[in-house]
Design a protein around this nucleic acid. Structure first.
Ligand SMILES: NC(=O)c1ccc[n+]([C@@H]2O[C@H](COP(=O)([O-])OP(=O)(O)OC[C@H]3O[C@@H](n4cnc5c(N)ncnc54)[C@H](O)[C@@H]3O)[C@@H](O)[C@H]2O)c1
Ligand SMILES: NC(=O)c1ccc[n+]([C@@H]2O[C@H](COP(=O)([O-])OP(=O)(O)OC[C@H]3O[C@@H](n4cnc5c(N)ncnc54)[C@H](O)[C@@H]3O)[C@@H](O)[C@H]2O)c1
Lengths: 214, 214
DNA sequence: TAGAAGTCGTGATTTTATTCACATTCTTTA
DNA sequence: TAAAGAATGTGAATAAAATCACGACTTCTA
């Protein structure tokens, strides 16, 4: 599956799910075609950037016409592996973890949280958002064929749990703890650091010119 | 406050709160000095990048020595306006909103969620995580001197609420809804799109070589 | 059917960010 | 006090991303 053309820029790859969602919306609205300009207004990405992004996958559009929504949609479905479901485990059924379980990222996705783990006996055995919560001691037993984990434990536990996840064969971690975890080269971590996001927004507000740019 | 040197690259500005947090940790641990190399290992940012980032603020370190933790800390405190508290409002006390209210980003921060709003009468009047929940109809009345809003409403409400926030004088919005909202130039929006984050992680796992590069 | 309007795909350019690599300076120690 | 070692700050190089700008082709309209 790790096909040749991993020459897609990372910045592009990060935008693909966004495009996918909006194209899906358009489809539901019954739109038949769309231009890079329209799409640009909807997703707030420069239209030239959109055309460039799409062009890495070949000629998806028609000059003078734009893009066929149906075609684009089927292309993205294929590319983002809509069909092949990625199993996700969530570790730490606290405030954040619970919110994620209720949401479960299922709107138009290729991912599903299949199980959750917690150290708190009070939570073990419950179902949250339709997902069973197991005890963290059972992690190694239960975690089969699970590629991705969402980490929402206290930051002090993050590194320890990470090592167990890696050992159990997880290859991608979405880390919501403020800890910067260390992993082997073959594991990919995306840090989502909500406090940093808030603080950097505040920094931009205070230090960057109010009008123009961005 | 919007000082001259807004010539700090955006990429640098986004890392500042991260640095700040780790320096704070070091300080608590009683460390007196730190090198860019050590810091690099902790925050997973190349050491040259760290030195470059710091250098935008002048010479914060000493050659052959490294950085004095205390000095660095006081510098960051000043720079990130630790003293001046930024008031934040949260709109939408649902799954995510509730989690944020309980957390309240107060660990070492310059931000505080001071009030929350929801359309659900059942939630109005409650206190969640020590924050009072008001009815969304009261938004314009209550929202004074609030610069930043966190948006955790259903995506269909996002644009509408955004317009009211902007009208009420908010200049920064942290948007957790999948909707890409439209704002005037003087308002800054940071989108945090959790589904996209998860999907793009999956995409990277499937399409990018397993070893090397992160 | 012809001309106008619209839009893509992409070379070229520009902008932004990262990384290399080293002269310089500080610390430490004997 | 001198020599070895450590680590900064930064010019230069490189890499990555965004944007410009236009030729080529499509569609629409009269
Ligand atoms: N809640 C937020 O809004 C928010 C915002 C930013 C960052 N974070 C970070 O996200 C993480 C989770 O935050 P939270 O508010 O949900 O915390 P929380 O305390 O509500 O939840 C943590 C959960 O992890 C469980 N846990 C503890 N040790 C464990 C272990 N060894 N194995 C398995 N489970 C374990 C706890 O029982 C608890 O249910 C924290 O690292 C926090 O810093 C949270
Ligand atoms: N929960 C998650 O894990 C998660 C993940 C990704 C994205 N999101 C996005 O975050 C947003 C919130 O998600 P959630 O799971 O918390 O949803 P939710 O339905 O639990 O919460 C939404 C809250 O907004 C309130 N609300 C509705 N209309 C309102 C209005 N006009 N004014 C004020 N409040 C109003 C509702 O009463 C409810 O309390 C959604 O847009 C969702 O797509 C959530």
């Amino acid at each position: 599956m790790s096909t040749d053309q991993h020459k897609i820029p990372q910045a592009t790859a990060k935008r693909l799910p966004l495009y996918y969602r909006f194209i899906n919306n358009l489809h539901h609205q019954g739109k038949l075609r769309v231009s890079s300009k329209e799409l640009s207004e909807a997703v707030k990405v420069d239209s030239a950037t959109i055309r460039r992004d799409f062009s890495y996958f070949g000629a998806l559009g028609k000059k003078g016409y734009g893009y066929n929504v149906e075609y684009l949609l089927s292309f993205f479905r294929k590319t983002l592996d809509q069909d092949e479901l990625t199993k996700v485990a969530l570790i730490g059924v606290g405030n954040l973890g619970t919110a994620f379980l209720h949401y479960n990222f299922m709107k138009n996705n290729n991912t599903k949280i299949e199980m959750a783990f917690d150290a708190d006996k009070g939570k073990v055995g419950e179902e949250v958002g339709g997902v069973s919560v197991y005890h963290i001691d059972q992690l190694e037993d239960m975690l089969k064929n699970t590629d991705v984990a969402i980490l929402t434990v206290p930051s002090s536990e993050a590194q320890n749990i990470t090592e167990r996840l890696v050992e159990a064969g997880v290859s991608g971690i979405l880390n919501f703890t403020p800890a910067r975890i260390t992993v082997p080269d073959h594991v990919r971590v995306h840090h989502i650091d909500l406090s940093v996001e808030l603080q950097s927004l505040v920094y931009f507000l205070k230090h960057y010119p109010l009008d123009e740019e961005e």
